[in-house]
């Protein structure tokens, strides 16, 4: 494992980064999307998240103005991706002449998928993400080329699949055959990476709620992905964000779609068991 170094005391770099950090707690606003989808933005931490009492959606860490962008689908630019994917959903792709809708009829038939992924796939004997599942459909059932893991089309499709599960409680399985992958993800979460020697936990567990320069550190929950990031003015996938975080530690990062990021996604998703699916959310 590259630059792997188990969590130890010290962390001088982090102390520097957070020097003068003021407490800036997440707010207690309620999130109801379109006046009808009630989100759970705070929940008791599940037992396997041993260092937190409460899990909090990234939405609660954003300013009122950013929060408002997610409260109405018309105001949410991430819904543009959902609309693009709706067209794709009904478009035949590949040699079998089938569209997504040939099997799934409507996107609503996929309600619940986002809440339980990544998920163990018995046939493939591996943990699959939503993106891997989409590509399995494309290549094995539709006779089509796979989409790039982080392509606009894939992120749009993933936003569509998330959107129909909005308001459902995240409940990814961490036991049984998924357990070893989950443990690998947990290991990564607490492993310091890069020249800055930062683990996910250093920012998102030890310092969530504090300011890192002018940025408000969240718990790094991923229940809102894909997220329309104001920083990019685009929908961003979970793995893209992971890559950005690891890059910011000045490490060689893993690739989107890599087994490492699949494991990390399963673990981080499980830290949000109890929050609700929000994708496509709006974040900074």
């Amino acid at each position: 494992m590259r630059q792997a170094k188990r969590l130890v005391g010290g962390g001088a770099v982090l102390v520097l980064l957070l020097a003068g950090a003021a407490l800036a707690d997440p707010d207690h606003d309620e999130l109801i999307v379109n006046g009808e989808i009630e989100m759970i933005v705070r929940a008791p931490a599940p037992p396997h998240v041993e260092n937190l009492d409460e899990i909090i959606s990234g939405w609660s860490f954003r300013t009122d103005e950013t929060q408002a962008l997610q409260m109405d689908d018309f105001d949410n630019p991430g819904m543009l991706g959902v609309e693009r994917a709706l067209v794709m959903f009904d478009t035949p792709m590949g040699t079998a002449g089938q569209a997504c809708s040939s099997c799934h009829e409507t996107p609503e038939a996929l309600r619940g998928v986002r809440a339980t992924y990544p998920k163990w796939d018995e046939e493939r004997q591996t943990v699959q993400t939503v993106e891997m599942q989409v590509n399995e459909c494309l290549t094995e059932r539709m006779g089509a080329e796979p989409l790039g893991y982080d392509s606009t089309e894939m992120v749009d499709m993933s936003a569509l699949i998330a959107s129909v599960s909005r308001g459902m409680v995240v409940d990814v399985a961490i036991d049984g055959p998924a357990q070893s992958t989950w443990e690998k993800g947990r290991e990564m979460y607490y492993t310091r990476f890069g020249q800055l020697e930062l683990a996910c936990a250093n920012c998102h567990e030890d310092n969530a709620g504090r300011m890192i320069r002018a940025d408000h550190l969240s718990q790094g929950q991923i229940n809102g992905f894909p997220a329309y990031r104001l920083n990019n003015a685009a929908l961003i996938s979970v793995h893209n964000r992971f890559r950005g975080c690891i890059r910011d530690t000045r490490a060689e990062t893993f690739e989107v779609g890599s087994p490492e990021f699949v494991a990390l996604e399963l673990y981080v998703a499980s830290r949000g068991n109890g929050l609700t699916v929000e994708g496509p959310s709006v974040r900074n």
């Binding site: 320069r213 940025d215 910011d248």
Partner: peptide, 8 residues
């Protein structure tokens, strides 16, 4: 306008 902590 704030300067971000990450990816900024």
């Amino acid at each position: 306008v704030t300067i971000g902590g990450c990816g900024g």
